[in-house]
Amino acid sequence: MTTTDGHVVVDHLSKRFGAVLAVDDLSFEVRPGRVTGFLGPNGAGKTTTLRMLLGLVSPTSGTATVSGRRYTDIPRPAHVVGAALEAASFHPGRSARDHLRVLAPQVGVPDSRCDEVLALVGLTDAADRRVGGFSLGMRQRLGLATTLLGDPRVLVLDEPANGLDPEGIAWLRAFLRHLAAEGRTVLVSSHVLSEVQQTVDDVVIIARGRLVHASSLAELARLARRTVRVASPDQDGLRRLVERVAGGSTPGAAVSLPEPGVAVLEGVEAAAVGAAAFAAGVELHELASRDVGLEDLFLQLTGERAASGAPPEPDGPGTRPVADAATERGAA
């Protein structure tokens, strides 16, 4: 076993379709034993990236490897990577079992494996029904069954939660967690963070083909922390308060001053701000704490929020880019 075993590495990957730069110098790494969410709005380049990883689309530049090898260089690749790209890749006239039986010889598994994976995804009763009559959720399950045929170490799933009902999403969540717990690498794409928020350990977020964020979900959640908004008629007092909070007592706190007489502090508790105001003798008219949802943060990271017409934030003192995004919500 090498150190790259089960790792997915995307390295300076780009893809141009005519005038569209679908993927733009994208690099990230996906580790085994974890579920990684590959996130971005519609058209961000998720599917294109996954198709390049799987040898279906040739990159304009850069490489993508699984366990250190390009997909097309892996002999019997379905034993190493199981991939489901879209719910529509079935011949409507074939039954679920026949869809799998068609692939089994080249995957390199006996026919009995087809029934095993159908049972794993709960499609045993529908095995002999034609896929043309399947619901979207059933197709997703069949797609998942396809990925499992070769019992691969790495799973690549493009929007697997699309079309699933809440029960189906809960089932998928447990299923993916189980696969990761077995030590497999699970890469799932989605265009909504909330859909995979409870499933993923790591996130890779892209927008317009570029990487905007990659970290563990926990780290992302830390960015999405609470903001505290304070308002005071005493502009100088407010300055003093801000200095006191941001200055020494609470390292990592970020501040913005969205309008006269208002400050938004991030990375601190409301109680700490209240105590500081009391100690500084500043009259407060408002002290409110607010959670920036992960989804909001996601929208800001991917630029959706800005695109939807929010006014640009005037630069406050000591504001970091990410905090800027977060405080904007707090102030809005």
Binding site: G55, P77, A88, L103, Q106, V107
Partner: peptide, 17 residues
């Protein structure tokens, strides 16, 4: 048929050559 129903995708995933 493979292109019409996009089964070319699973086909080439199982056998990229």
């Amino acid at each position: 048929n493979e292109f019409r129903h996009m089964t070319i995708t699973p086909t080439l995933l199982a056998e990229p050559r």
